[in-house]
Design a protein around this nucleic acid. Sequence first.
DNA 1: CGGGGTGTTGAGTCCACTCAACCCTGGTGG
DNA 2: CCACCAGGGTTGAGTGGACTCAACACCCCG
Lengths: 241, 241
Amino acid sequence: MATSLSANQGSTRCAFDGFCRQDASSGAAIHAPGEFPCAHRHIKAGQVLYRAGDDLHSIYPVKAGCLKATFPAEGSRDQVVGFYMRSDLVGLDAIGSGKYSTTVTALEDSEVCMLSYLQLEDHCQQNNDLRRRFETLLGRELNSDQGSLAMLGSMTAQERLATFILSMSARFSALGYSSSEFRIQMTRDDIGSYLGLRLETVSRILHRLQDLKLLSINGRELEILDRPGLERIAHARNEGG
Amino acid sequence: MATSLSANQGSTRCAFDGFCRQDASSGAAIHAPGEFPCAHRHIKAGQVLYRAGDDLHSIYPVKAGCLKATFPAEGSRDQVVGFYMRSDLVGLDAIGSGKYSTTVTALEDSEVCMLSYLQLEDHCQQNNDLRRRFETLLGRELNSDQGSLAMLGSMTAQERLATFILSMSARFSALGYSSSEFRIQMTRDDIGSYLGLRLETVSRILHRLQDLKLLSINGRELEILDRPGLERIAHARNEGG
DNA sequence: CGGGGTGTTGAGTCCACTCAACCCTGGTGG
DNA sequence: CCACCAGGGTTGAGTGGACTCAACACCCCG
């Protein structure tokens, strides 16, 4: 059975440890060195956490669930620019301008912490280590975007899908779930928008990869059958000269 | 005559004022509240400032010239992920990992400041205002990447070119140069790599836009003849339902 | 004068898109 | 219970835009 994103596995080791910690059983916030209390918030599937243009008030570490960020695209349907899972920080797009630049929507029932940005700044100022970790996360976000940029610029649809699946696999793995068998929460349309493809193309190519015995896809349940094969496709450009 | 990027206009008002200031005439560094001395460095056209994988030591505000950042693409030719002009901060891609993730090359003879990152961190810690400005720049970088992402995902070649030209125009304008007549320092190949197009396509479409009387292109000298027209093309998707 | 880097232009191909039909599933209500 | 519907997903046929391959023009520089 595929691991669900929404399964909360009690004690969590994730990137935002130190920003905020909460007693899973009681829901009560714990004060600890370099940590501070924060409220949490449930978001039902399809509901919006914040909209592009809203004022920055909080940064939201994801505790459970899966969300997508969309970038308003003037007339056309909004473009998906990222997906968030547990341990990701939502809201960094507002840093700099003071306004969120994307709209964040839950893909399934999700739970996030709410870190007041002002409070976070205060704590970062006092705690060098915390600040550094925060910067690290900002930088990682930046790099992941540049990676996506490189992908959209130069890859074929098949290469993009293979890369996307491997990256999802890596993220699940980093969270302690199976890296070869998981459930993706986004629709074909979401994936297509994110990868710069039409949903029909996403569907077709997922099945092509299945025909090639590289993976098995059943609705949103995905199993990687031949990781080296997928990697070969993801990096197809360095094949045979 | 088109304004050259490399023309240094003496007293500069730009985003990194406060990070570093230097007496333009003597080259001597000036100490001022919230500012600190820094070395500067000349880079000849074609030379590399740093390579992907190098350890982060400095952040480089651009004083003059134009540079490109390329992302290593495993086998294929590296992908251009950004261009830097005066007042841009080069090196932010290393924040988080501690290693630069891109290779930065000068497109023309350029000049950058060298801010030791350790020193910068120290100063940011002591100077709240400086830190905030630094974060602002980080955030802006992030947003610009997400904008590019949206562009690559959903736009046609013509829309991409129009958007790119308008964005270059805005950048020149922000630096105090003409917004309608300027010289782009990058090759068709660079532009194509950045926009996810082949250089032939870039060339063809630039001339198509010229045929449409929207701009005039002569080598790298570019003049915008019909800004509203360009904007209409850049946002083509919201035309006539 | 030759050579490399850059840019333009043409002809033909292919990949991803568009348009369209259809299936499956879950939910709702008679 | 079944009918109906909406959202998501699959599959097919045909089109078009960007790519590939290729030739050639231009310019600077040695």
